[in-house]
Write a protein that binds this DNA or RNA. Structure first.
Lengths: 118, 118
DNA sequence: TATGTAGATTGATGGCGGTCGATCTGGAGC
DNA sequence: GCTCCAGATCGACCGCCATCAATCTACATA
């Protein structure tokens, strides 16, 4: 993969001849791109990014009742954002009594992190 | 910042007393969170992520006519995705003659990359 | 059993995003 | 000037997303 083929279109060419041959292919396959894009999508909201940031600071669990007052949005919206993050695999949660505790799943971030740092 | 305050709500408390005091704050300020979320949003589509992937392989410029045939979408849609990436600061472009050449701006990815690898 | 509470769910609303067909722009070559 | 072509832009369509008010679900405590 990543063969360095001709990337500069011919400036001179016969009429009807296509500008470029089909050439370089992405190194990241479609399926992996979809997985990483999914994680990026989960982080594509400032509030969700800050939620993950708080959870990562305390490498243990954090009670939802700690998170809600940090943001200028209602409780249902916080709950919604946490659900989005959970469905993306970025966080998980446990319930204990009345309270729900959320924590980060670091392995979910590794793929995107490594690709970005390539 | 990142003071490790009490994160476990009191299981016993007086009636009317709130579950938790407002406690931990995000390490990442709102404005920085918005910038990083903006980059994440630009990468939150598999096609855009693969576009960036191709551009990063060839650390120079790539002609749009190389990119278009790689994906099962029309030319206007490719153009749209490149515009989204450009407006997010992730890529930039130059025009030479009939052709447009795109390239990655690596510094745009650094913030998110470093935060993810924290 | 009844009451209070943390957090999830529902339904509605307004705005944004991906895609396409059609059109526009501007450089190249005759 | 005329024609051809690469790529950008426009307009429309449709589905998704962030938010809120209202409601629901468990659990706890009396």
């Amino acid at each position: 993969m990543a063969v360095d083929l001709e990337l500069t279109p011919k400036q001179k060419r016969a009429p009807g001849e296509p500008c470029c041959e089909p050439v370089a292919y992405p190194e990241v396959a479609r399926q992996e791109a979809e997985r990483m894009a999914g994680v990026a999508k989960a982080l594509a909201d400032p509030i969700r990014l800050q939620l993950v940031d708080v959870l990562r600071q305390h490498a243990g669990e954090v009670c939802v009742c700690e998170l809600t007052p940090l943001f200028d949005i209602g409780q249902p919206t916080v709950s919604h954002h946490l659900k989005v993050l959970r469905e993306a695999g970025v966080v998980d949660s446990v319930r204990r009594g009345l309270w729900a505790y959320y924590f980060v799943r670091p392995e979910a971030l590794k793929g995107l992190a490594r690709w970005l740092s390539r």
